[in-house]
Design a protein around this nucleic acid. Structure first.
Lengths: 159, 159
DNA sequence: CCTTACTATTGAAAATGTCAATAGTGTCTT
DNA sequence: AAGACACTATTGACATTTTCAATAGTAAGG
């Protein structure tokens, strides 16, 4: 397993060389990479439940008691309203959420999780917690809180 | 602008209600949202240069002096090798990078930025710095360093 | 009533992500 | 040296995600 270069000084340790590149110091890039790793892991753990991070997020909000409208879901998740329609079509067909026309504003529909939806969400929450645990394995509890707070201020700038 | 409810207690302040939902405390979700906002902003500022965050990242690594192979690019950016091919096809056609067969391993190709590529990268770096500045406007310099370091440890777990 | 704005919905197009197969090259074993 | 096996870039197919424009129904204001 000897990897020491015999002749010159250049380290051949392959991939870590790029960690010195300026890109590796850009928060935008690090965020994208962290997210790619995280959602890949979460998707893998959610697969047995036939959910993805997307549908999990919608289900979670639907079951939160906040009873959001579709427009609110779109805004909060930064998704196109049309994507919300598609996601809800899937969840509603499986009996996990229901759409109710808002009596206050008949244009709007209020989304609520069903009992079945809440039941599945409980399982899904375990899966995502596991995924988060794996993704953040190197961070202490205090560091996770720090990270959460910093990200919250970036993700919800102005609120 | 009076929004006070006349009859009951429920606050109608529309979108912030969802901030109380459990999902809003999940680091995975916050990361995804921060990244969506950030790359949207970056893409907008890169558009005049005919770049996107994707091609910018490749160009940046190509011009870093690290002379990465395509496999290394794929691994570092968490992209499929095929996506790297497509990105490089575009950049190479514009004369921004060049592929050189690695004499040490003729399977592999080493990617380097051209003078033109470095010149465009200089402009692009300004754009992305602006985007980052806007995205992180609420954070102090010390907080940005904290965030960068925490994200680095999540994004490069084990290194 | 009429204009204007908003909500959910649909459909199309672009970008991104995932996967399998292949030709050329390196490496290791025998 | 030959053959088996692994790795690199490339291609093509396909699913998912993203972005955008158009529409029907509803609300709100003059």
């Amino acid at each position: 397993m000897n990897r020491l270069p015999t002749t010159d000084s250049a380290p051949s340790a392959a991939p870590d060389r790029l960690l010195e590149a300026p890109l590796a110091a850009e928060i935008e890039f690090l965020t994208a990479r962290a997210r790619a790793l995280g959602s890949a892991k979460a998707n893998a753990l959610l697969q047995p439940l036939d959910l993805r991070v997307r549908s999990y997020a919608v289900l979670s909000l639907a079951c939160s008691g906040a009873a959001p409208s579709q427009r609110e879901l779109a805004e909060f998740l930064l998704l196109d309203p049309g994507q919300i329609v598609a996601l809800l079509d899937g969840l509603e067909q499986r009996g996990l959420v229901k759409r109710e026309t808002d009596p206050q504003d008949r244009r709007s529909k209020v989304i609520r999780g069903t009992a079945k939806g809440r039941s599945l969400l409980a399982e899904a929450a375990v899966a995502t917690a596991q995924a988060e645990e794996q993704s953040l394995a190197d961070l202490t509890s205090a560091e996770r809180d720090q990270l959460r707070e910093l990200l919250r201020r970036v993700a919800f700038q102005g609120r």
